[in-house]
Design a protein around this nucleic acid. Structure first.
Lengths: 159, 159
DNA sequence: TAGGCAGAGTGATAGAATAACGCTAAAGAA
DNA sequence: TTCTTTAGCGTTATTCTATCACTCTGCCTA
Protein backbone atom coordinates (compact mmCIF):
# COMPACT_ATOMS: atom_id res chain seq x y z
CA UNK A 1 0.00 0.00 0.00
CA UNK A 2 1.36 3.36 -1.01
CA UNK A 3 1.51 5.93 1.73
CA UNK A 4 0.03 9.08 0.35
CA UNK A 5 -0.44 10.99 3.53
CA UNK A 6 0.14 14.30 1.93
CA UNK A 7 1.01 17.44 3.73
CA UNK A 8 -1.17 20.03 2.14
CA UNK A 9 -4.62 21.04 3.27
CA UNK A 10 -6.96 20.87 0.33
CA UNK A 11 -8.70 24.05 1.37
CA UNK A 12 -5.68 26.28 1.61
CA UNK A 13 -3.53 27.50 -1.22
CA UNK A 14 -0.39 25.47 -1.53
CA UNK A 15 3.13 26.29 -2.48
CA UNK A 16 4.53 25.08 -5.78
CA UNK A 17 6.67 22.73 -3.75
CA UNK A 18 3.69 21.15 -2.02
CA UNK A 19 1.94 20.76 -5.32
CA UNK A 20 4.89 18.96 -6.79
CA UNK A 21 5.15 16.62 -3.85
CA UNK A 22 1.50 15.84 -4.19
CA UNK A 23 1.82 15.21 -7.92
CA UNK A 24 4.61 12.77 -7.27
CA UNK A 25 2.44 10.97 -4.76
CA UNK A 26 -0.36 10.93 -7.29
CA UNK A 27 1.97 9.37 -9.81
CA UNK A 28 2.86 6.63 -7.37
CA UNK A 29 -0.79 6.01 -6.64
CA UNK A 30 -1.63 5.73 -10.31
CA UNK A 31 1.22 3.32 -10.86
CA UNK A 32 0.20 1.23 -7.89
CA UNK A 33 -3.04 0.69 -9.80
CA UNK A 34 -1.23 -0.16 -12.99
CA UNK A 35 -2.09 3.21 -14.49
CA UNK A 36 0.02 6.07 -15.74
CA UNK A 37 -0.08 9.69 -14.80
CA UNK A 38 0.80 11.01 -18.24
CA UNK A 39 1.96 14.61 -18.74
CA UNK A 40 -1.51 15.79 -19.69
CA UNK A 41 -3.15 14.06 -16.78
CA UNK A 42 -0.53 15.44 -14.49
CA UNK A 43 -1.04 18.91 -15.86
CA UNK A 44 -4.81 18.75 -15.40
CA UNK A 45 -4.39 17.51 -11.87
CA UNK A 46 -1.95 20.33 -11.23
CA UNK A 47 -4.48 22.87 -12.48
CA UNK A 48 -7.11 21.37 -10.20
CA UNK A 49 -4.77 21.59 -7.26
CA UNK A 50 -3.89 25.18 -8.02
CA UNK A 51 -7.48 26.23 -8.39
CA UNK A 52 -9.02 27.81 -5.34
CA UNK A 53 -12.46 26.81 -6.57
CA UNK A 54 -13.90 23.84 -8.38
CA UNK A 55 -12.68 24.10 -11.95
CA UNK A 56 -14.86 23.97 -15.03
CA UNK A 57 -13.73 21.76 -17.87
CA UNK A 58 -13.58 24.60 -20.37
CA UNK A 59 -11.60 26.77 -17.99
CA UNK A 60 -9.05 24.03 -17.72
CA UNK A 61 -9.08 23.94 -21.47
CA UNK A 62 -7.99 27.56 -21.64
CA UNK A 63 -5.43 27.29 -18.91
CA UNK A 64 -3.78 24.30 -20.44
CA UNK A 65 -3.52 26.17 -23.68
CA UNK A 66 0.01 27.46 -23.48
CA UNK A 67 0.78 23.82 -23.15
CA UNK A 68 -0.50 22.75 -26.53
CA UNK A 69 -3.97 23.83 -27.53
CA UNK A 70 -6.16 21.19 -25.99
CA UNK A 71 -9.59 20.24 -27.26
CA UNK A 72 -12.51 19.17 -25.07
CA UNK A 73 -11.98 15.41 -25.32
CA UNK A 74 -8.45 15.83 -24.09
CA UNK A 75 -9.64 17.43 -20.91
CA UNK A 76 -12.55 15.11 -20.38
CA UNK A 77 -10.37 12.08 -20.87
CA UNK A 78 -7.93 13.36 -18.31
CA UNK A 79 -10.73 14.16 -15.89
CA UNK A 80 -12.30 10.74 -16.38
CA UNK A 81 -8.99 9.13 -15.68
CA UNK A 82 -8.36 11.16 -12.55
CA UNK A 83 -11.80 10.30 -11.26
CA UNK A 84 -11.35 6.63 -12.04
CA UNK A 85 -8.24 6.42 -9.89
CA UNK A 86 -9.72 8.60 -7.18
CA UNK A 87 -7.53 11.63 -7.71
CA UNK A 88 -10.40 13.93 -8.61
CA UNK A 89 -14.12 14.33 -8.13
CA UNK A 90 -16.86 15.89 -10.13
CA UNK A 91 -19.22 18.20 -8.30
CA UNK A 92 -22.48 17.47 -10.02
CA UNK A 93 -24.36 20.52 -8.93
CA UNK A 94 -21.66 22.79 -10.39
CA UNK A 95 -20.48 20.78 -13.36
CA UNK A 96 -17.04 21.37 -11.99
CA UNK A 97 -14.10 19.32 -10.85
CA UNK A 98 -11.83 19.25 -7.84
CA UNK A 99 -8.68 17.39 -6.92
CA UNK A 100 -9.39 14.83 -4.28
CA UNK A 101 -8.32 16.01 -0.88
CA UNK A 102 -8.40 12.65 0.85
CA UNK A 103 -6.28 10.22 -1.06
CA UNK A 104 -6.23 6.77 0.44
CA UNK A 105 -9.64 6.91 1.93
CA UNK A 106 -12.25 4.65 0.49
CA UNK A 107 -14.46 7.61 0.81
CA UNK A 108 -17.83 8.66 -0.30
CA UNK A 109 -17.08 12.28 0.08
CA UNK A 110 -19.37 15.13 1.01
CA UNK A 111 -18.83 18.49 -0.62
CA UNK A 112 -19.66 21.74 1.09
CA UNK A 113 -20.10 24.39 -1.55
CA UNK A 114 -19.99 27.95 -0.35
CA UNK A 115 -22.26 30.30 -2.26
CA UNK A 116 -20.27 33.26 -1.03
CA UNK A 117 -16.63 32.43 -1.72
CA UNK A 118 -17.32 29.77 -4.31
CA UNK A 119 -15.05 27.28 -2.60
CA UNK A 120 -15.82 23.62 -2.15
CA UNK A 121 -14.60 21.80 0.91
CA UNK A 122 -14.38 18.06 0.86
CA UNK A 123 -15.61 16.64 4.11
CA UNK A 124 -15.12 13.16 5.36
CA UNK A 125 -18.54 12.78 6.90
CA UNK A 126 -18.57 9.39 8.54
CA UNK A 127 -21.90 9.73 10.31
CA UNK A 128 -23.63 10.73 7.12
CA UNK A 129 -22.04 8.01 5.07
CA UNK A 130 -22.99 5.27 7.43
CA UNK A 131 -26.50 6.62 7.92
CA UNK A 132 -26.96 6.72 4.18
CA UNK A 133 -25.67 3.19 3.82
CA UNK A 134 -28.15 2.17 6.47
CA UNK A 135 -31.12 3.96 4.90
CA UNK A 136 -30.33 2.50 1.50
CA UNK A 137 -29.92 -1.02 2.80
CA UNK A 138 -33.28 -0.67 4.51
CA UNK A 139 -34.76 0.35 1.17
CA UNK A 140 -33.28 -2.73 -0.47
CA UNK A 141 -31.03 -0.64 -2.66
CA UNK A 142 -27.64 -1.91 -3.75
CA UNK A 143 -25.26 1.04 -3.76
CA UNK A 144 -22.62 1.59 -6.40
CA UNK A 145 -21.81 5.21 -5.75
CA UNK A 146 -23.18 8.21 -3.93
CA UNK A 147 -23.20 11.93 -4.48
CA UNK A 148 -23.63 14.20 -1.49
CA UNK A 149 -23.38 17.94 -1.91
CA UNK A 150 -24.45 20.79 0.32
CA UNK A 151 -24.93 24.42 -0.66
CA UNK A 152 -24.63 27.18 1.87
CA UNK A 153 -22.14 29.42 3.60
CA UNK A 154 -18.85 28.10 4.85
CA UNK A 155 -17.37 28.74 8.27
CA UNK A 156 -14.84 31.29 7.02
CA UNK A 157 -17.43 33.35 5.20
CA UNK A 158 -19.63 33.40 8.28
CA UNK A 159 -17.09 35.21 10.41
CA UNK B 1 -51.89 24.52 5.61
CA UNK B 2 -53.08 22.74 2.53
CA UNK B 3 -53.51 19.02 2.88
CA UNK B 4 -51.84 17.43 -0.08
CA UNK B 5 -51.61 13.90 1.12
CA UNK B 6 -52.00 12.46 -2.31
CA UNK B 7 -52.98 8.92 -3.07
CA UNK B 8 -50.58 7.86 -5.72
CA UNK B 9 -47.25 6.20 -5.14
CA UNK B 10 -44.57 8.10 -6.99
CA UNK B 11 -42.87 4.92 -8.09
CA UNK B 12 -45.85 3.24 -9.66
CA UNK B 13 -47.61 4.27 -12.83
CA UNK B 14 -50.71 6.26 -12.07
CA UNK B 15 -54.05 6.48 -13.69
CA UNK B 16 -55.09 9.61 -15.55
CA UNK B 17 -57.51 10.19 -12.73
CA UNK B 18 -54.80 10.09 -10.08
CA UNK B 19 -52.69 12.42 -12.14
CA UNK B 20 -55.49 14.90 -12.40
CA UNK B 21 -56.19 14.79 -8.70
CA UNK B 22 -52.54 15.40 -8.05
CA UNK B 23 -52.44 18.31 -10.47
CA UNK B 24 -55.34 19.91 -8.71
CA UNK B 25 -53.55 19.50 -5.41
CA UNK B 26 -50.47 21.02 -6.97
CA UNK B 27 -52.48 23.98 -8.11
CA UNK B 28 -53.76 24.52 -4.60
CA UNK B 29 -50.23 24.29 -3.24
CA UNK B 30 -48.96 26.84 -5.71
CA UNK B 31 -51.77 29.20 -4.89
CA UNK B 32 -51.18 28.79 -1.19
CA UNK B 33 -47.77 30.26 -1.89
CA UNK B 34 -49.17 33.09 -3.94
CA UNK B 35 -48.06 31.47 -7.17
CA UNK B 36 -49.93 30.24 -10.20
CA UNK B 37 -49.85 26.88 -11.85
CA UNK B 38 -50.26 28.17 -15.38
CA UNK B 39 -51.24 25.82 -18.23
CA UNK B 40 -47.63 25.33 -19.31
CA UNK B 41 -46.41 24.67 -15.81
CA UNK B 42 -49.27 22.29 -15.28
CA UNK B 43 -48.51 20.50 -18.52
CA UNK B 44 -44.83 20.10 -17.64
CA UNK B 45 -45.73 18.76 -14.24
CA UNK B 46 -48.14 16.35 -15.87
CA UNK B 47 -45.41 15.08 -18.17
CA UNK B 48 -43.13 14.59 -15.18
CA UNK B 49 -45.82 12.65 -13.37
CA UNK B 50 -46.48 10.45 -16.37
CA UNK B 51 -42.84 9.67 -16.93
CA UNK B 52 -41.65 6.41 -15.50
CA UNK B 53 -38.11 7.76 -15.38
CA UNK B 54 -36.54 11.11 -14.63
CA UNK B 55 -37.31 13.30 -17.63
CA UNK B 56 -34.77 15.28 -19.63
CA UNK B 57 -35.63 18.85 -20.44
CA UNK B 58 -35.37 18.31 -24.19
CA UNK B 59 -37.56 15.25 -24.04
CA UNK B 60 -40.20 17.31 -22.33
CA UNK B 61 -39.70 19.81 -25.09
CA UNK B 62 -40.66 17.25 -27.70
CA UNK B 63 -43.56 15.85 -25.76
CA UNK B 64 -45.07 19.19 -25.14
CA UNK B 65 -44.87 19.92 -28.81
CA UNK B 66 -48.35 18.99 -29.92
CA UNK B 67 -49.25 21.61 -27.40
CA UNK B 68 -47.60 24.55 -29.11
CA UNK B 69 -43.99 24.15 -30.17
CA UNK B 70 -42.09 25.04 -27.05
CA UNK B 71 -38.56 26.37 -26.99
CA UNK B 72 -35.99 25.57 -24.30
CA UNK B 73 -36.57 28.64 -22.13
CA UNK B 74 -40.23 27.74 -21.88
CA UNK B 75 -39.41 24.37 -20.39
CA UNK B 76 -36.65 25.62 -18.16
CA UNK B 77 -38.83 28.36 -16.80
CA UNK B 78 -41.54 25.88 -15.99
CA UNK B 79 -39.02 23.53 -14.38
CA UNK B 80 -37.51 26.36 -12.35
CA UNK B 81 -40.93 27.30 -11.14
CA UNK B 82 -41.88 23.78 -10.18
CA UNK B 83 -38.66 23.39 -8.27
CA UNK B 84 -39.10 26.71 -6.53
CA UNK B 85 -42.46 25.66 -5.11
CA UNK B 86 -41.28 22.15 -4.32
CA UNK B 87 -43.31 20.33 -6.93
CA UNK B 88 -40.28 18.98 -8.78
CA UNK B 89 -36.64 18.16 -8.24
CA UNK B 90 -33.63 18.12 -10.46
CA UNK B 91 -31.47 15.03 -10.31
CA UNK B 92 -28.04 16.51 -10.76
CA UNK B 93 -26.21 13.38 -11.70
CA UNK B 94 -28.62 12.77 -14.58
CA UNK B 95 -29.49 16.30 -15.62
CA UNK B 96 -33.06 15.16 -15.39
CA UNK B 97 -36.17 16.15 -13.54
CA UNK B 98 -38.82 14.39 -11.49
CA UNK B 99 -42.09 15.38 -9.96
CA UNK B 100 -41.80 15.55 -6.22
CA UNK B 101 -43.25 12.51 -4.56
CA UNK B 102 -43.50 13.93 -1.07
CA UNK B 103 -45.39 17.13 -1.17
CA UNK B 104 -45.76 18.75 2.22
CA UNK B 105 -42.52 17.46 3.64
CA UNK B 106 -39.84 19.98 4.31
CA UNK B 107 -37.61 17.37 2.93
CA UNK B 108 -34.11 17.09 1.78
CA UNK B 109 -34.81 14.16 -0.41
CA UNK B 110 -32.56 11.28 -1.28
CA UNK B 111 -32.77 9.84 -4.77
CA UNK B 112 -32.03 6.22 -5.52
CA UNK B 113 -31.20 5.92 -9.17
CA UNK B 114 -31.31 2.44 -10.61
CA UNK B 115 -28.74 1.80 -13.32
CA UNK B 116 -30.76 -1.13 -14.57
CA UNK B 117 -34.32 0.12 -14.94
CA UNK B 118 -33.45 3.80 -15.07
CA UNK B 119 -35.97 4.67 -12.42
CA UNK B 120 -35.40 7.11 -9.60
CA UNK B 121 -37.04 6.55 -6.27
CA UNK B 122 -37.39 9.42 -3.89
CA UNK B 123 -36.61 8.30 -0.39
CA UNK B 124 -37.37 10.14 2.78
CA UNK B 125 -34.16 9.23 4.57
CA UNK B 126 -34.44 10.69 8.02
CA UNK B 127 -31.33 9.14 9.48
CA UNK B 128 -29.21 10.41 6.63
CA UNK B 129 -30.69 13.87 6.72
CA UNK B 130 -30.10 14.34 10.39
CA UNK B 131 -26.62 12.86 10.24
CA UNK B 132 -25.76 15.21 7.43
CA UNK B 133 -27.15 18.16 9.33
CA UNK B 134 -25.04 17.11 12.26
CA UNK B 135 -21.84 16.68 10.25
CA UNK B 136 -22.32 20.04 8.57
CA UNK B 137 -23.03 21.86 11.79
CA UNK B 138 -19.86 20.36 13.20
CA UNK B 139 -17.98 21.71 10.22
CA UNK B 140 -19.39 25.17 10.82
CA UNK B 141 -21.29 25.09 7.57
CA UNK B 142 -24.59 26.89 7.21
CA UNK B 143 -26.82 24.76 5.00
CA UNK B 144 -29.13 26.17 2.38
CA UNK B 145 -29.82 23.03 0.36
CA UNK B 146 -28.54 19.54 -0.05
CA UNK B 147 -28.27 17.08 -2.90
CA UNK B 148 -28.09 13.40 -2.06
CA UNK B 149 -28.14 10.86 -4.85
CA UNK B 150 -27.22 7.20 -4.93
CA UNK B 151 -26.49 5.08 -7.99
CA UNK B 152 -26.98 1.35 -7.94
CA UNK B 153 -29.58 -1.35 -8.38
CA UNK B 154 -33.05 -1.01 -6.94
CA UNK B 155 -34.87 -3.65 -4.97
CA UNK B 156 -37.15 -4.66 -7.83
CA UNK B 157 -34.30 -5.14 -10.26
CA UNK B 158 -32.47 -7.29 -7.75
CA UNK B 159 -35.17 -9.94 -7.66
C1' DT C 1 -57.35 54.68 -18.36
C1' DA C 2 -52.44 54.42 -17.84
C1' DG C 3 -48.63 52.15 -15.88
C1' DG C 4 -46.21 48.24 -14.27
C1' DC C 5 -45.18 43.58 -14.17
C1' DA C 6 -45.30 38.47 -14.47
C1' DG C 7 -45.51 35.10 -17.88
C1' DA C 8 -44.52 33.45 -22.21
C1' DG C 9 -42.58 33.62 -27.37
C1' DT C 10 -38.46 33.82 -30.06
C1' DG C 11 -33.76 33.80 -32.02
C1' DA C 12 -29.33 33.51 -30.75
C1' DT C 13 -25.73 31.81 -28.19
C1' DA C 14 -23.11 29.89 -24.36
C1' DG C 15 -21.61 25.92 -21.88
C1' DA C 16 -20.94 20.78 -21.08
C1' DA C 17 -19.96 16.47 -22.98
C1' DT C 18 -19.40 12.75 -26.36
C1' DA C 19 -18.95 10.34 -31.05
C1' DA C 20 -16.11 8.74 -34.41
C1' DC C 21 -12.13 8.63 -36.65
C1' DG C 22 -7.03 8.21 -37.27
C1' DC C 23 -2.25 8.41 -35.67
C1' DT C 24 1.67 7.19 -32.69
C1' DA C 25 4.37 5.03 -29.49
C1' DA C 26 5.05 1.94 -25.80
C1' DA C 27 4.17 -2.75 -23.96
C1' DG C 28 3.79 -7.53 -24.68
C1' DA C 29 4.12 -11.82 -27.49
C1' DA C 30 6.52 -14.58 -30.89
C1' DT D 1 14.50 -8.36 -32.56
C1' DT D 2 10.17 -7.97 -35.02
C1' DC D 3 5.37 -8.18 -35.03
C1' DT D 4 1.06 -7.23 -32.83
C1' DT D 5 -1.78 -5.06 -29.83
C1' DT D 6 -3.54 -1.43 -27.38
C1' DA D 7 -3.60 2.84 -24.52
C1' DG D 8 -3.34 7.55 -25.13
C1' DC D 9 -3.98 11.50 -27.63
C1' DG D 10 -5.25 14.74 -31.75
C1' DT D 11 -9.00 16.40 -34.48
C1' DT D 12 -13.55 17.44 -36.43
C1' DA D 13 -18.05 17.37 -35.74
C1' DT D 14 -22.06 16.93 -33.22
C1' DT D 15 -25.19 16.35 -29.38
C1' DC D 16 -27.08 17.71 -25.26
C1' DT D 17 -27.93 21.20 -21.58
C1' DA D 18 -28.96 25.77 -20.35
C1' DT D 19 -29.25 30.79 -20.51
C1' DC D 20 -29.37 35.61 -22.65
C1' DA D 21 -31.70 39.34 -24.45
C1' DC D 22 -35.38 41.06 -26.35
C1' DT D 23 -40.41 41.34 -27.39
C1' DC D 24 -45.26 40.95 -26.69
C1' DT D 25 -49.42 40.27 -24.22
C1' DG D 26 -52.71 40.32 -20.72
C1' DC D 27 -53.68 41.06 -16.04
C1' DC D 28 -53.68 43.74 -11.87
C1' DT D 29 -53.53 48.04 -9.65
C1' DA D 30 -53.35 52.94 -9.03
Amino acid sequence: MIEAQHAHDANKPHTPKETEVFLDEAEAIAESKGQKLTPIRRKVLELLLDSREPAKAYDLLEKIEGYGAAKPPTIYRALDFLQSVGLAHKIESLNAYVACGHINHEHSAVFLICDKCGGAEELHADATSSALGEDLRAAGFEIKATTIEARGICRDCNE
